[in-house]
Amino acid sequence: MSGALSGLKILDFSGLLPGPFASMYFADLGAEVIHIESPTRPDLVRLFAPYVFGQSAAYNYLNRNKQSIALDLKQAESIQLIYDKIKDFDIVLEQFRPGVMQRLGLDYATLAKRHPGLIYCSITGYGQTGDYQHRAGHDINYIALSGIAGHSGRKVNGPPAQGIQIADIAGGSMHAMIAILAAVIERQSSGLGQHIDISMTDCVASLNSMAAAASLAGVPQQVEGELLNGGSFYDYYATRDGRYLSIGSLEPQFQQGLAQALDLPIIQEKGGSLDATDREQVKQAITARIIQQDLAYWQTHFANLDLCVESVLSLDEALHSELAQQRQWLVDVPIAPHSQETVKQMACPIKFSRSKMRYHYIGQALGQGQWPTSK
């Protein structure tokens, strides 16, 4: 079985998280990825602790299955080498601020003259146009400007600091992957590539989905004021031992079951009410009941009840849970091709009936890789 994207070749100039996460998935799916790094200013993820086999664990993961090529893009011979090689590639992925690749002579317009079928994806914080295009930013800034932080969190302490990079991955990486694969399909009929402009802020703003639909219909979204952001009993509840239980029993049959399981008739009586006072009474009743017992008690209590109630796990607990084992969240990746030594990493979660994922080796040492053979 071959990878679903076997045959695609990607030249990846990106660093840190958004671009590398996308190109890692492409590589897992069988694409051939060449990761270009500066020999003097390599990808900063290489510096992130902890280290495994002498390299950053994060770099080992984000750059698995990729060939690392060290090139100084400020040198004319490096640019000429890219010109010579570009026809061997289907896709270019880059993550510099707007204008940088143009100054280097590696922008879409320049490369498309040499390779009209090239698909060229640029991932930036604020896109290639508009007043924000040259501003610096990080995940927290993109989420702030998207409106997501404005209707998330608690009234008493404001927006939450997330444990993951939502805009970088859900905004940048995932939307870039969708766009690139759509362009690959379109090229089959047109024979032409195109430039893709991915703004992480644009893309993460689109994740507002239902909240934005309501807001545009004239119902502004309020912190802890909506069905799914803490304004109903759909929420997290503290247990006696300082852990948390997630309760999402919104539908009538689940509300009825939860009311019975907790012996709280008020859930069935007022759980679906639109009145803020009723909603608050339901939450207070559930809060008072859940905190009477430890998490282990509630895990046993709800184990055989299909009510949308689950424990809040630590990341370590989640990665080693029965669910993780049954769904194969983790995979052992060789530290080098054909090596018997392996590193445990998160697997690609996509599952096909025929196509096979590949996990050939972890991220390479700087400049260790080789160019692919010409088409």
Rank of each mutant, 00 (worst) to 15 (best):
G272S: 08
R289D: 02
R354I: 13
W298K: 04
F302A: 05
L305Y: 08
R354V: 12
A318E: 02
F233I: 11
L264I: 03
T239M: 04
A238T: 08
W329M: 03
I247W: 00
T287C: 05
Y244G: 01
A288P: 00
Y237A: 10
I267H: 01
L250D: 00
M357G: 13
T342L: 04
V333H: 03
I267F: 09
G248R: 00
Y234G: 02
K351N: 08
T287H: 08
Q253E: 08
R279G: 05
R243D: 08
R358L: 07
E251L: 10
A347P: 03
Q256S: 12
E310T: 14
A276Y: 03
L274N: 11
H320T: 14
L295K: 09
H301W: 14
R358G: 06
G257M: 14
Y244S: 12
D278F: 09
D316T: 12
Q260G: 04
F233Q: 06
S314K: 12
R289I: 09
S311L: 00
I362F: 07
E310N: 14
Q256A: 14
Y237L: 12
L307Y: 09
I335P: 06
V312I: 14
G257H: 14
A276T: 14
A365N: 15
R354M: 04
L323W: 05
I267M: 09
G272A: 04
K270E: 08
C348N: 15
W329F: 10
A365G: 10
V343G: 01
A259Y: 07
A318G: 05
Q268W: 12
I335N: 12
K270Q: 13
A365I: 10
I335Q: 08
C348E: 10
L274R: 14
P337N: 07
E317Q: 15
C308A: 07
V309C: 15
D278H: 15
D294G: 09
E341N: 13
I291T: 07
I335C: 10
A336V: 00
Q253T: 06
I290Y: 01
S246P: 04
A296H: 12
S246I: 10
A238M: 06
A324H: 00
S232T: 15
D332Y: 04
W298Y: 05
Y236V: 12
D275I: 10
D278C: 05
M346I: 12
L264R: 09
G257A: 15
A238S: 11
D235R: 14
Y237C: 09
Q268H: 04
I290F: 03
S311H: 06
Q328L: 06
Q325A: 14
L366M: 11
K283D: 02
I291H: 01
P334C: 13
D316L: 09
C348Y: 04
D278Y: 07
Y361N: 13
S321T: 04
K344I: 13
F233W: 10
